[in-house]
Design a protein around this nucleic acid. Structure first.
Ligand code: FES
Ligand code: FES
Lengths: 152, 152
DNA sequence: TCAGTATACGACCAATTATGTCGGCGTTTC
DNA sequence: GAAACGCCGACATAATTGGTCGTATACTGA
């Protein structure tokens, strides 16, 4: 039903949290989990996935934890979602490689692929920074305007 | 993971099928299901939902079935999805009415609501007609261009 | 070098949701 | 009145997600 998984949600929250604290060297999974009241072990796994995807740098040992591997501005929501939930297709036939069983019958797939790309584009145009900035509504000077064109 | 349900997919396929046959008075659920090789009873339920939502007109009895209740051009993909899967929220907290348990902690909800609206806008800008037309690539004269603006 | 704190990873279970089926009932047409 | 159809709710099953556990490994500092 076109919904983000909780994992992706958690991942975005965590990254936003990190983006809001650029001064800190690293934050442990537990720190972040506690801040939001989400299961620590689950978040740990998510952060590990993001690390593997190259969005975070991790450091074990005391005072270890995670830190953004790039500028918050350079990390898109799309990358986060992709890293956590894998490549997404709006279409139900996620067979990825070579289409699904009903490929000949389902004539709706192709137009929806355009929609898929459009949504991906929207997500790509949003950075963690955008999410973090939104936190401070007093500033309000900075507005992001993403323009997306969809051609069927 | 931001994916359409099969029901919604089936629903869109069925409507497209109807849109491609404007001359026919009505098509039974079974006819359409057979055409695409999808479970007839399941499709029947979906079509019933679409009828309740006012997108289709139904007619019982012999030679009964379903027909579009409006011009294909006037039915958006959004309406179809909404009718089948209920109101959609990108955010995982679908508690609808009054937010979720973590509302104070989850600071990401609001910016994502914008994204949600953007996607809804894209879906609203696509009509069943658009899907049906795409079938005939020889015509190719008619292109739809939806422009969506996202402001965070 | 040892205790403490942290990530890494895979297996596993639990909860939820999506998908599909069944049976009975109401309606329309022939 | 019987065949062909829609209508509805309750179920059963399958798939996905969400979350836990156990253990191994890495780093730090005293
Ligand atoms: S459902 Fe598989 S091609 Fe559309
Ligand atoms: S998870 Fe509920 S408000 Fe974001």
């Amino acid at each position: 039903m076109l919904k983000l998984t909780k994992k992706a949600d958690y991942g975005l929250m965590a990254l936003k949290y990190l983006a809001e604290r650029p001064e800190t060297v690293a934050l442990s999974a537990k720190d972040i989990a506690d801040a939001y009241g989400i299961p620590a072990q689950l978040l740990a796994k998510i952060l590990q996935q993001l690390t593997r995807a190259g969005l975070l740098r991790s450091h074990a040992g005391m005072n270890g934890g995670y830190a953004l591997s790039r500028e918050a501005r350079e990390i898109s929501a799309y990358e986060v979602i992709h890293a956590i939930d894998g490549p997404f297709f709006i279409t139900s036939c996620t067979k990825g490689a070579k289409g699904c069983e009903l490929t000949p019958s389902c004539t709706i797939k192709e137009p929806l692929a355009r929609v898929n790309d459009t949504i991906a584009g929207v997500l790509k145009s949003i950075s963690i920074q955008d999410l973090a900035e939104h936190e401070h509504p007093h500033g309000r000077g900075h507005e992001v305007n993403a323009l997306v064109s969809l051609t069927l």
